[in-house]
């Protein structure tokens, strides 16, 4: 049981990561691909926060009478990564909009066909 609770977080993180990777490589729709990338990204966030968690620790805000805190460093890294992540997602979505305007489709297969017939 201890072995299970020790590693459960990491297994779910790996599962989410693989779901994201699968979405990116197996789906042809570009919006779906962006969502897959986002799931992959969130799984990395969980990996960092899981590593930073200390059993019985408190949130890293200094309070009187609390001795044990969680590791603040992963929180800092992930906090900024989330905001940078949404900015880059917006960039990807902007590219999708431009692709739609030039090719009139966002399905990968149809874009390939159009490229070959040009």
């Amino acid at each position: 049981m201890d072995f299970f609770t020790d590693h459960y977080n990491y297994w779910v993180v790996i599962f989410l990561m693989m779901v994201g990777l699968y979405t990116v490589i197996s789906r042809g729709n570009l919006i779906k691909k962006v969502i897959g990338l986002n799931i992959f990204q969130v799984s990395v966030f969980f990996l960092y926060i899981s590593i930073g968690t200390v059993e019985g620790g408190a949130a890293p805000i200094i309070t009187e009478g609390v001795e044990l805190y969680s590791n603040p460093l992963p929180h800092v890294l992930i906090l900024t990564a989330i905001v940078v992540g949404v900015a880059t997602t917006a960039l990807a979505l902007a590219l999708v909009v431009r692709i739609k305007e030039s090719y009139d489709t966002i399905e990968e297969d149809e874009i390939h066909e159009l490229d070959h017939t040009l």
């Binding site: 966030f45 930073g52 929180h75 905001v83 992540g85």
Partner: peptide
């Protein structure tokens, strides 16, 4: 997981 700052950001973003 004791990360209220990150939770804040994730909920809003």
């Amino acid at each position: 997981m004791d990360a209220p700052d990150v939770a804040f950001t994730e909920a809003a973003v």
